[in-house]
Computed example of a mutant assay.
Amino acid sequence: MIQLQSIVKQFKSKNGVFNAVDHVDIQVKKGEIHGVIGYSGAGKSTLIRCVNLLERPTSGKVIINGVDLTNASIEQLQQSRQKIGMIFQHFNLLKTATVYDNIAIPLKLLGYSRQDVEAKVTKYANIVGLSDKLASYPNQLSGGQKQRVAIARALSQEPEILLSDEATSALDPETTDSILDLLLEINEQLGITILLITHEMNVIQKICDYVYVLEKGKLVEHNTSIDLFTKPQHPTTQKFLNTISQRNLSDSLIEQLNLTGAVIRLTFVGESTGKPLIADVANHFNIQPNILAANIIELKNGIVGNIVVHINGTPSEINAITKYLTNNGVQIDMLGGTTNE
């Protein structure tokens, strides 16, 4: 569906030429939701604008449904763009136009009949929950409602792909959740493939099947959501995960606690999240693990739990406990502490 092959986008500055996007490869299958996450300046917006050639890559290929847009004719590019909808952080609505007219703009530009325009506007306003707001103006709407108008406008051309450029970053948490629920519904009911960029890990957590992590234009890590949340490899990914879950304790805190034994992070996935394994360890090994931090994260395709525990035992006891937990599907990471032998 979407293939980005070794995409490079260069810009000139007073210090010379720099790569805003540096040899990035992405592949999104039909019907999936993929997310690109990175901090400010990582190259996310530039990358997503390369997908529909709002930014033309300096090198590399953009292939949509088998068509190489970077080498396509103007006519082929226009045809492909009609199947790619896009929503933005700041909505891009006309202030002097009603909700109806904002949704209708691309349809009128494409020459649809008045009857077809009315049918499509009505259909997609209903899908995004704005049937009663068609006569309203943007200044009469909340931020979430404005984004719903923008989503309806993007859907009005009945695209196969929806690009989301930080579509929730200007919204409060509750409104963000409602927009993410809407995107999930659109994906599931209409079968639209979604590629989004964000700097918010909770967005990735809630709706993405697959994740790409960008840093300074480079793709530093990519994986399924489950694997990324359970086995993050790159420091940037680990830093993002710490914004939504207490996966680590600081070295200074561990030192202040003056713990003997070991401080261990236990990561539970799938079935292991429902097992009373901490209680089993206490009963089986006659050791009382001290829980220092814990959380559970609900992803689109599964559940991940993290528990940081202190185990005051000998090295042999700790080895036996970690082996027992590993055999029960728990991922073990040693965070610190000292042994008492």
Rank of each mutant, 00 (worst) to 15 (best):
G217P: 08
G217N: 04
K218N: 14
L219R: 04
L219S: 11
L219W: 02
V220D: 05
V220P: 06
V220W: 01
E221W: 14
H222L: 08
S225I: 07
S225H: 09
I226S: 12
I226C: 08
D227M: 11
D227W: 06
D227R: 10
D227G: 10
D227K: 11
F229K: 07
F229P: 06
T230C: 12
K231T: 14
K231A: 15
P232N: 11
Q233W: 10
T236Q: 13
T236C: 15
T236N: 13
T237V: 14
Q238T: 13
K239A: 15
F240P: 04
F240Q: 05
L241M: 06
L241T: 06
L241I: 08
N242H: 08
T243G: 10
I244C: 03
S245A: 15
Q246K: 14
R247A: 01
R247H: 07
N248K: 14
L249F: 02
S250D: 15
S250A: 14
S250R: 13
D251Y: 08
L253V: 10
I254T: 04
I254Y: 08
I254H: 07
E255C: 12
E255A: 15
E255G: 11
Q256K: 14
Q256I: 12
T260I: 13
A262H: 05
A262D: 03
V263C: 01
V263S: 00
I264V: 14
I264T: 04
I264W: 01
R265G: 00
R265H: 05
R265W: 01
T267E: 03
F268E: 03
V269Q: 13
V269R: 15
G270N: 13
G270E: 14
G270L: 08
E271Q: 12
S272N: 07
S272K: 09
S272H: 08
T273G: 08
G274Y: 11
G274A: 11
G274P: 05
K275C: 06
P276F: 06
L277T: 06
L277M: 09
L277K: 09
I278W: 03
A279F: 09
D280T: 13
D280N: 15
V281F: 01
A282I: 07
F285G: 05
N286P: 06
N286C: 09
I287F: 02
I287Y: 02
I287E: 01
Q288L: 15
Q288M: 13
Q288W: 08
Q288S: 12
P289V: 04
N290P: 04
I291Q: 02
I291P: 03
I291S: 02
A293I: 00
A294K: 05
N295H: 10
N295T: 12
N295A: 11
I296T: 12
I297N: 00
I297P: 02
E298R: 10
K300T: 04
K300V: 03
N301G: 09
N301D: 13
G302I: 03
G302P: 03
V304T: 05
V304W: 00
V304F: 01
G305H: 00
G305P: 00
G305C: 03
V308T: 02
V308H: 00
I311M: 01
G313I: 04
G313A: 03
S316T: 13
S316N: 14
S316L: 15
E317Q: 15
I318F: 01
